[in-house]
């Protein structure tokens, strides 16, 4: 028992290897993971909490499916985003016109695909912490994207991504809880604390 408790931390003393981490985070298609996202705006009475599922049905497609409080499916594939909402015809957008969606694909999509090269092509990567509780910082290389996005911080435990923290150039930090953390989140939970893994 004692041996077991010591072993992981000793392992974590070694420099955190971002390549090894990226390999561990990769989820070969088809794969799916639950998410909860919270967004605040001065126009809203209360922060908006959106939940659903990210899916990679195949290696080149990323789907963001919102299930509550409304139904919406965004499919990113081949430079296009198709946004389908209940009761409306799907809309197709060129990703080049919506840098925010392009960034989603180049960061989160590449992460799930285990495509370290694609990720490094778009971001400077800096991993910190221990193997069991780590953060990985992504800073955009592209000046255009940097004008909109200051950076993305990924929080995780071991092989699991717990939360994505997105800091826009202007405005509030937006947080997306992933996987088990997202499923466990209750009403009124402290999202920021859950994201950083400092809650309880």
């Amino acid at each position: 028992m004692g041996l077991l408790a010591i072993a992981p931390s000793a392992w974590a003393q070694a420099a955190l290897d971002s390549d090894a981490l990226l390999r561990a985070l990769a989820r070969p298609a088809p794969a799916a993971t639950a998410f909860v996202e919270v967004r605040d705006s001065p126009m809203l009475k209360a922060p908006l909490r959106v939940s659903g599922e990210y899916r990679r049905p195949d290696a080149t497609t990323l789907v963001r499916e919102v299930r509550a409080p409304y139904a919406e499916t965004t499919t990113l594939r081949g430079g296009e985003a198709i946004i389908a909402r209940a009761g409306r015809a799907p809309r197709t957008l060129a990703l080049s016109r919506v840098p925010e969606l392009a960034a989603l694909q180049s960061s989160f999509g590449a992460l799930l695909a285990g495509d370290a090269d694609a990720l490094r092509a778009h971001y400077r990567i800096d991993a910190q912490g221990t193997r069991e509780r780590w953060t990985m910082q992504l800073v955009p290389r592209d000046a255009r994207l940097a004008a909109k996005l200051r950076g993305i911080v990924l929080h995780g435990d071991g092989d699991d991504l717990r939360c994505i923290e997105t800091t826009p150039a202007k405005g509030e930090v937006q947080r997306t809880l992933m996987g088990a953390t997202a499923q466990a989140v209750g009403a009124g939970a402290d999202i920021a604390a859950l994201c950083r893994g400092t809650a309880g």
Binding site: S41, M43, P69, E72, R85, V98, E100, L101, L104, K170
Partner: peptide, 21 residues
Amino acid sequence: LQARVQDLGSPAADLVEPLLP
């Protein structure tokens, strides 16, 4: 307005938020 709520919940929220008021 319901559609705007969905826009605010989308990854492209920053794009539309300044226009909404």
